[in-house]
Amino acid sequence: MLRYVLRRLALLVPMAFIISIVVFVAMRMIPVDPGELVLGPWATAEQRELARQKLGLDQSIPVQYLRYVTTAFQGDLGRSIKSGKEVTELIRATVPNSLMLGGTALALAYLIAIPLGVVAAVRQNTLVDQGAMGFALIGISIPNFWLGLLLVLVFAVNLRWLPATGSGTAAHLILPAVTLGLQYTAIVARMTRSSVLEVLRQDFVRTLHAKGLRRGRIIYMHVLKNAVIPVISLLGLHIGGVVGGAVIVETIFAWPGMGALLVNSIIARDYPIVQAVLTLLGVAVLLANLLADVLYAAADRRIKM
């Protein structure tokens, strides 16, 4: 297992390079006028050229990339064109916020969704099942931006129980985490239900019943363990997603995370931030997939590393 993990980690290095090259070239392909970014639309041709030189954009793309990589290895990812802040500083400030929001939302989602999915499967075609899946359907169907604003309207504006926006306290986390988590809850609950139903129909479950094991023990010790593998696949995807930040939720709740940073930077064409964040996200997705693979093995010993 350890050797497998190390091998996968070593593979991350070339993958990260490939990601960084793709992102870097993509950022150079889109029309960006650095003179306009820095000086506004009234910049003269002379000023635009000065800006290009200052930002090193008068060099060829390979030279620019080499310079970028060299400085990146020294911990310098450049400065934001708009705010002037160092990109590393901005990432350091936003990653914990995104992890906190995403982690809470995922924890909330999985803690609710797995039991919900199991109950729905075990009581298939009952009111409990229909209620649980109806809830899941609503969760998948409601757009984040609408749910977020609705929760703000009810719990912040009318009831005044929770803050509408911002960060800093546990109370600030509740509404964005619920908004973000509901969607994950719905997806995971549906996946758990179908997976549990599939396992319940297998012969070994009948055998366990025949051996006289209690139903609860069969479900939680045997069925769930087998049914959880596809759910782990989802977890890998979801972790990759939350590291990137929940763009819409972060925007609605003015949550200072990576998603909001990325979107604002894309809109502003603040390319030093965009290329650093996108590369980081690519690596994060690779790591999340690695984690999922490790969890697979832990859940099912038959899977060889």
């Binding site: 703000v152 504006v157 509408a164 925007t251 003015a254």
Partner: peptide, 13 residues
């Protein structure tokens, strides 16, 4: 606040 509705909700809350 990038979103006008969020900004409005923030003062109302």
């Amino acid at each position: 606040f990038a979103d006008d509705a969020s900004r409005t909700a923030a003062i109302e809350a």
